[in-house]
Design a binder for these strands. Structure first.
Lengths: 192, 192
DNA sequence: ATAAATGTTTGATAAATGTCAAATAATTTG
DNA sequence: CAAATTATTTGACATTTATCAAACATTTAT
């Protein structure tokens, strides 16, 4: 087994253990892809037919709003799944970009291949369901943060719950992720 | 076929068509439950082991924040699935209440029974996956609204995209759903 | 039909956040 | 390493939103 795939399989098995047969069927569809800093995994407007598991590095998902400002919607580090959900699920043009913030190693699996595996192995479809459910709950949490917290409280939420974000992601990007302006974020974190 | 189940089956078939065998297996687990206005389908702190399909009426999902203010997180009308996602998926205590805003007829299916069906029918598990994916994309949309729009723009979003909300849901509840105060919402909609 | 309860609007003011401009600080590149 | 670029902070001020109080309107229950 290539050592790079170990993290990926471990990640999967934690969500839903797979039989040796499923894993054997899955492996040929996995492909390693490495990206330099600032490369794009997904581009707004294109249909995203790949799902990425991040082995190392860091990516952001963002879109451009009406004023051509970038709105960051998601950040992912090692051992996270990066996917342009709407596009990948519906196979329609992506509303977002996914771009690396550092050199990043990924394991890629294609939409088409996942669906082959879904058809062939009920337990892989179950994995897909569980992954979607978990992802959903995470998005819901972030939605509540944006719905209920002040700028200062949003920053404190990051401090307590996503310390990696503050360590590794430029404030510039974190601001729109938190739904506040860069200057406000800078002030809020100065006074604490 | 009881006419009440028709909408439910139609809803399901639109997401993923099921074979007659699956439908036959599913039917015995469906149960009709009617609620009076202000009744609770789910209570914060309890494990929610039921998923509701709304035949008629209207429900809200909400939780109480640290100041004992109610934060509304979701509204559902006819032909929507109401579920306390976190609790139902993880079978841990619910973070939210689900309460009717009008007399409401539902079709209920239990967590345990869904999982029996998942085990027995791959295609029902697929339905579950697709439902989770769709739900996820909807939550993501609302997250973007809260992340990027001003109070006035949030109201205009509702006007254009969820006119039913404005017709049928008291402003009092819509305000926290939009992440703004009642008075602000009232002002914003007065000046238009 | 009326009183009580619930829901919405309005006003005055305070607090939070945004805007624009400029100064520092940190990082990248030749 | 120095210049150029990118990122962050700070200041003055504008705008938005919240807060608190009260009035007004609508719905519900008797």
């Amino acid at each position: 087994m290539l050592p790079l795939f170990e993290n990926y399989l471990e990640f999967i098995q934690k969500i839903h253990p797979l039989s040796p047969e499923s894993i054997e069927a899955l492996m040929p569809f996995l492909q390693q892809k490495n990206f330099a800093k600032k490369d794009f995994l997904v581009r707004q407007g294109n249909i995203s037919d790949e799902l990425y598991f991040i082995i190392s590095g860091c990516v952001r998902e963002y879109f451009e709003d009406a004023n051509a400002d970038e709105i960051n919607t998601w950040f992912g580090f090692e051992n996270a799944v990066a996917v342009s959900t709407y596009s990948f699920f519906s196979q329609k043009p992506s509303l977002t970009n996914i771009q690396t913030l550092e050199d990043t190693e990924t394991i890629v699996i294609r939409h088409e291949d996942i669906h082959k595996l879904y058809n062939q192995f009920h337990e892989i479809e179950r994995l897909g369901r569980l992954l979607a459910e978990q992802y959903l709950v995470q998005i819901e949490e972030m939605k509540i943060i944006l719905q209920t917290l002040s700028a200062r409280q949003r920053y404190e939420y990051l401090l307590q719950n996503k310390p990696d974000f503050i360590k590794r992601i430029p404030l510039k990007y974190l601001a729109s992720f938190l739904g506040i302006k860069l200057e406000t974020l800078s002030r809020v974190r100065g006074q604490k």
